[in-house]
């Protein structure tokens, strides 16, 4: 379990290094509520994808930017 956390924390650190802009929680997201069912283009092929496509397994979601 610690290695999962370490892997997760390592990736999180990458994002903190490139795009740390604040500590406030994002608007519109609430613990205990469903994640919004947005359909967005996938980076890989531009095809429509939604977080609902990943239902059935636990998801670690990173919302980030490369800047």
């Amino acid at each position: 379990m610690l290695s999962s956390w370490a892997s997760f924390a390592g990736i999180a650190l990458i994002f903190l290094m490139v795009a740390s802009v604040g500590a406030a929680a994002p608007s519109g997201l609430q613990v205990g509520q469903p994640f919004p069912l947005l359909t967005l283009p996938a980076l890989a092929d531009g095809q429509p994808r939604s977080l609902a496509d990943f239902r059935g397994g636990k998801v670690i979601l990173h919302i980030w930017a490369s800047w």
Partner: peptide, 8 residues
């Protein structure tokens, strides 16, 4: 803000 990590 970003980055944000969310567990689903």
């Amino acid at each position: 803000v970003v980055p944000v990590t969310v567990l689903l």
